[in-house]
């Protein structure tokens, strides 16, 4: 039940060439996420999605405004899924799962095994990442993030490096896993279709880092990509974007 509050957030970068303009990655955005919801942040490249995620995870600091991520008043525990799997190639799958744990108790091992099993990787514990396909590696990355029992899960375009078929099957895996665990998720993507299938809410960013739209999706989980209701909604929302007006930034 993490609570994310973003208020008057702005992030500026120094001009890339001398005498150029300051780069506005994010311009004054406000939003709030409360409870176990799956929220997607969508937008074309260069609209500040990754910057926002970096600020949320504490890798980057805002120029102005504030961001708080709390769990029952205390700082929340975070989990991450990256664009690439980021597994230690010299450690087995199980050792990779245990690498992010602070203890090596039987409980932790059982917990890791449970999440591996949820993403369908029961028989891979002793294998090295190099022996797995790209999709399987990313599934280990997802299981790893869930296994630390985070209050807030940050996912940064986790399927963008995979081929279409693999990505599709992984989305179903993620839907399944999320329906069972119901964590608060912030999911960054540039793929509207993906966002519609996965999320309860979609925050759309426009270039310059402003919120262009904030859409609620009211469909029961888990959702399959093949579900006609999902497909209808995808078509409908995609239609709205066809005449997306990029607001002027002052």
């Amino acid at each position: 039940m993490a609570k994310v509050t973003v208020s008057k957030l702005a992030k500026l970068f120094p001009p890339p060439i001398k005498g150029g303009d300051v780069v506005r990655a994010i311009t004054n955005i406000d939003f709030e996420v409360d409870g176990n919801v799956f929220v997607s942040i969508v937008g074309p490249s260069g609209c500040g999605k990754s910057t926002l995620l970096n600020i949320l995870s504490g890798v980057d600091t805002p120029t102005s405004g504030s961001v708080t991520v709390t769990e029952a008043g205390k700082p929340a525990k975070l989990g991450y899924v990256f664009q690439d799997a980021r597994l230690l190639p010299w450690r087995s799958v199980m050792d990779n799962m245990m690498y992010v744990r602070d203890d090596a108790s039987e409980e932790s091992v059982a917990n890791a095994a449970k999440y591996l099993s949820m993403v369908g990787l029961d028989h891979t514990h002793e294998m090295f990442p190099g022996q797995l396909s790209g999709g399987m590696q990313q599934r280990v990355g997802i299981a790893r993030a869930f296994s630390v029992e985070p209050d807030l899960l940050l996912m940064d375009e986790p399927f963008s490096h995979l081929d279409a078929m693999t990505a599709r099957s992984l989305r179903d895996h993620l839907q399944d896993l999320w329906s069972r665990t119901r964590k608060t998720v912030l999911f960054v993507t540039h793929d509207v279709m993906e966002a519609v299938q996965l999320s309860d809410r979609i925050i759309v960013l426009a270039p310059g880092g402003v919120i262009y739209d904030d859409i609620s999706i009211d469909l029961p989980h888990p959702r399959k990509a093949s579900d006609p209701k999902v497909a209808t909604l995808q078509a409908e929302i995609l239609g709205q974007f066809e005449n997306m007006q990029i607001p002027a930034v002052e």
Partner: peptide, 14 residues
């Protein structure tokens, strides 16, 4: 040394 792995480790508080 893979910067991504170092980042990942920091993210998970290693």
């Amino acid at each position: 040394v893979d910067k991504g792995l170092l980042n990942m480790s920091r993210s998970f508080g290693r």
